[in-house]
């Protein structure tokens, strides 16, 4: 399956050359969020805010939530403003 992974702020340092904002990942069925992050070597501890289709995935579900073909995964470090 294919999912879109978008990284923000300091996490963009983990993107491969030629990719400014994110990548499309080809993952096996049943892959989880940690599986997707592992492809780029993003430490899970830095993934402070995780969204799928614009909805938050909270810590209890981060490890177990299985990705679905075509989903968009957005990951942020700890950031704030206002």
């Amino acid at each position: 399956m294919k999912i879109a992974l978008r990284l923000y702020a300091t996490l963009r340092d983990y993107l491969p050359d030629g990719h400014d904002t994110g990548v499309t990942l080809d993952l096996p069925d049943g892959a989880t969020i940690p599986d997707a992050l592992a492809v780029l070597g993003v430490p899970l501890a830095l993934a402070h805010i995780i969204m799928i289709q614009g909805r938050r995935v909270l810590p209890p579900d981060v490890a177990t939530r299985q990705l679905v073909d075509g989903e968009e995964l957005a990951v942020f470090p700890a950031i704030g403003g206002g």
């Binding site: 614009g54 950031i79 206002g82």
Partner: peptide, 25 residues
């Protein structure tokens, strides 16, 4: 010590919020 006041805000300023509010709809 706090990641927002210690790292996030100094690096990107408050405008780092554009992308997260966009993603959150």
């Amino acid at each position: 010590d706090h990641p927002v006041s210690g790292q996030g805000l100094p690096t990107y300023g408050t405008n780092v919020l554009v992308n997260i509010l966009h993603e959150a709809g």
